[in-house]
Nucleic acid binder design. Structure first.
Lengths: 215, 215
DNA sequence: CGGAAGATTGAGCGTAGTCAAACCGAGTGG
DNA sequence: CCACTCGGTTTGACTACGCTCAATCTTCCG
């Protein structure tokens, strides 16, 4: 979200609230009324795949929007829960459009926000479709690093809020494979990793090694 | 696109045109001005992946919309070309919004159209992320079958407009694997396939065998 | 009919999945 | 303070699915 967008968003009616780690923000199939802006904290979205097993479809950091998957059919497509204590703004979807009526610029902003989501999926699709396990993890780390960097946090050192199992599910591989890839990266001096803490992430090295290029 | 949407779309200014098989509709990076409705024919969209190799990102049948990937940044994200002679309507994007100003219902329609795209990607993500090669091909065939069925064509028998290589790229596997999967399906009596012609597609059988469930 | 492009099939190999065991840190209670 | 548990993580051994390379067969079109 850019500065202009943020200013307009702040003028929209909304309610703030907090949810605890592990609490659900919304569930698959629930009626969609709100888009949610993440003030602080981290969330994960997941789909219930064939066979009932969970498939992580995304992680949401502070400053990002959650819930747009509900627009298409008026009900949420995914289940979203907090990975740590999280502060949110609930923005009523109808207000988004009340604001937009007669304002062509605002309509573009909204459309773009939604289409950004499409682009993210496009990119992810390529990651999942054609990349090896190590390439996937590299792409994931670079993406996270960029998102943290964009919010003013360190790009080289950060704390993963999600488990190996959740990363694995998101990337479409097994958790053991994620663990092995981390170990390989450590041996190759691309990073220091201890449990969920990442230090000295060597962005250029990873990008060069894996030719990863994210939007 | 449902009936109501179609009616509204028809009232939008647009120009019709035809393009030949192999011709490009637009290229990656080109400025985005139009959304395109497919009147007849088939198109494929592809991205240029790292290393310059082509990655097929979607196929578009008659009655579907093409070009929404351009909304996000004002330029097309993918390259789209016709797989056979194809008739199109070019819909100027600005007109879409002129029409929508002051019309809340229409705004919802547009938003939904765009968000449908997100849903498709979600589904595809799951296909690519967690499924085996045979499951991917089964999901692909079921999806195609449903889309043909929705347009009034046969669900059991149709002609593939794309090569094995294009199917493989789309599904994130190799063309030999696609070919082998087709052979396996034939042995298991799920379909008759001769080159690009599919007959006697056993939808229920495939769905049961692979637990595929598409939106 | 002949050539080229596309599709099928085969053999060998490598990546990542599966199953299993060991390890580690945090929290709990004797 | 240490033993214990418990979830999460790491590592190992084995296996299998799908990739690669290569040969053959089929289809499409001039």
């Amino acid at each position: 979200m850019n500065g202009v967008t943020r200013a307009r968003m702040d003028s929209v009616k909304f309610t703030r609230r907090k949810i605890k780690a592990g609490q659900k923000l919304y569930c698959e199939g629930e009626r969609f009324h709100y888009v949610h802006a993440v003030r602080s904290g981290t969330l994960k979205s997941s789909l219930t795949g064939s066979g009932g097993r969970e498939q992580v479809s995304g992680f949401h950091l502070a400053g990002e929007l959650v819930g747009l998957d509900g627009v298409a059919n008026g009900q949420y497509r995914s289940t979203t829960m907090a990975l740590e204590d999280t502060e949110l703004c609930d923005i009523a979807y109808v207000h988004l459009f009340e604001l937009a009526v007669g304002d062509k610029g605002m309509q573009h902003v909204i459309s773009r926000l939604m289409c950004r989501e499409i682009l993210r999926k496009h990119t992810l699709m390529m990651v999942l479709g054609t990349m090896s396990a190590e390439e996937r993890l590299a792409a994931f780390l670079i993406d996270l690093s960029q998102r943290y960097g964009a919010r003013g946090y360190s790009r080289q050192e950060f704390h993963l809020r999600m488990s190996r199992a959740e990363i694995a599910s998101y990337l479409g591989i097994e958790l053991e494979t994620v663990s092995r890839a981390f170990s390989t990266f450590r041996q190759q001096r691309f990073l220091d990793v201890k449990a969920r803490h990442i230090r000295n992430l060597h962005l250029e090295g990873l990008s060069r090694r894996f030719e990863v290029r994210l939007c």
